[in-house]
C-alpha cells in the first residue's frame, strides 16, 4: 500500500505544481483578461528564485518571496500596455511576452546560464510543502471569489459596460487580477525550480502554455473546481491509459478542440450548472413566475 502511494508521489508533485499555474491562468481569465502569458511569468519567478539561490546563496524561503515579487512586478509593468488593449490583442501581446522572456533567458548567458540554464539548485521543496502551497492557493482563490473582488471580476468578464456603469473600474481590477496572477505564477515557477535541481529556458515555452490552458479550459474557467478537475484528469489520463503517455501533446491538442467546441464551459462548470439546474428544477423560472402570487 505504502509503495503504491510512493509510486504516485511524483505524479502528485506534478499535479500540485501545475495546479498553481492553472489557478494563475484561471484568475486572469476570470477577470476577463485575455492573457496567455502565465508561463512567461512563471519563467520570471523560476529564474529569479534559481539565480538568487544558486548565484547569491540566498535561502530558499527568501528567494520564494522575491520570486512572487518579481512575477507580480513584471505583470504590473505588462499591465500598462495590456490595459489599453482588448481581447485578441491582449492574447497576442502576452504570447509575445513569453517569447521575449525566452530569448532574454537564452541571451543573458552570464546571468541565466543561457540555453544550458541553471543547474545545481538545491532541492528544498518536497510533497509536504507543495501540499501546503496548494491548500493556501485554493483558500486564496476561494476568498477572492467570495469577496467584492470576485464579484467585480465576474461582472467585468461578462459585460464590461455593465461593470463600468456600476462603478467598477475595469483597468484597476484587471490590473489587480493580472498582478496577483503574476505573483502566483512567480511563486509556482520558483517552487518548480526548487523542486527539480535544474532550470532550462525552453521549459517555459509553447507546450507548457498549452498544457496549462488545457487544464483550465477542460476543467472550467469560472468555478473554483475547474483547475483542480482539469489538472487532475489531464495529468492522470496519460498514466491510466499508457499508450497516451507518449502522445501527451497530441491528446491535449485534440482535447482542446473537442472541449471548446462541445463542452465550452469545461467539465466542472458544466456539472455544477447541471446540479444547480436540478436543485432548482422542481420549479422552473416560468412556473415560479406564475406561482409568486402577489
Amino acid at each position: 500500500m505504502m509503495n503504491l502511494l510512493l509510486g504516485y508521489q511524483p505524479l502528485l508533485d506534478l499535479f500540485l505544481l501545475h495546479l498553481g499555474l492553472a489557478y494563475a491562468q484561471w484568475l486572469v481569465l476570470r477577470a476577463g483578461v485575455f492573457s496567455l502569458g502565465t508561463v512567461g511569468l512563471a519563467a520570471v519567478g523560476a529564474y529569479t528564485g534559481g539565480i538568487l539561490v544558486v548565484t547569491y546563496g540566498l535561502p530558499a524561503p527568501l528567494a520564494l518571496i522575491a520570486s512572487a515579487l518579481s512575477g507580480g512586478l513584471v505583470a504590473l509593468a505588462l499591465s500598462v500596455p495590456l490595459a489599453r488593449l482588448r481581447g485578441i490583442y491582449q492574447a497576442i501581446a502576452t504570447v509575445a511576452f513569453i517569447q521575449i522572456v525566452l530569448s532574454l533567458n537564452i541571451y543573458a548567458t552570464n546571468v541565466t546560464g543561457g540555453a544550458q540554464g541553471i543547474t545545481g539548485i538545491p532541492k528544498t521543496v518536497g510533497t509536504p510543502l507543495l501540499l501546503v502551497a496548494g491548500a493556501v492557493t485554493i483558500y486564496l482563490m476561494y476568498a477572492i471569489t467570495r469577496s467584492r473582488l470576485g464579484r467585480a471580476f465576474d461582472a467585468i468578464r461578462q459585460n464590461e459596460a455593465v461593470a463600468a456603469s456600476l462603478g467598477v473600474s475595469i483597468v484597476r481590477h484587471q490590473t489587480l487580477a493580472f498582478v496577483l496572477s503574476g505573483a502566483l505564477a512567480g511563486v509556482y515557477g520558483a517552487l518548480e525550480a526548487f523542486h527539480s535541481y535544474a532550470l532550462v529556458p525552453s521549459q517555459f515555452g509553447f507546450p507548457y502554455l498549452i498544457a496549462i490552458l488545457s487544464y483550465v479550459v477542460f476543467g472550467g474557467r469560472t468555478s473554483l473546481w475547474g483547475p483542480i478537475v482539469g489538472t487532475a484528469v489531464l495529468i492522470l489520463l496519460p498514466e491510466v491509459v499508457r499508450p497516451l503517455a507518449d502522445a501527451r501533446m497530441l491528446v491535449f491538442g485534440i482535447l482542446l478542440i473537442l472541449t471548446i467546441n462541445f463542452l465550452p464551459k469545461g467539465i466542472a462548470d458544466t456539472l455544477i450548472e447541471r446540479a444547480r439546474g436540478r436543485r432548482l428544477g422542481a420549479r422552473r423560472p416560468a412556473e415560479a413566475d406564475t406561482a409568486k402570487g402577489s
Binding site: Y139, L140, Y142, A143, I144, R146, S147, R148, L149, R151, A152, D154, A155, V162, A163, L166, G167, V168, L176, L180
Partner: peptide, 22 residues
C-alpha cells in the same frame, strides 16, 4: 450584489485574504 460595488469599503488585502471584514 454587483450593484453595491460603489459602497463596498473593505480593503483589497482583507478581500484577498478572506478576512472577517470582507
Amino acid at each position: 450584489l454587483i450593484g453595491f460595488h460603489r459602497h463596498e469599503r473593505c480593503s483589497t488585502l482583507s478581500a484577498l485574504l478572506g478576512l472577517p471584514a470582507s
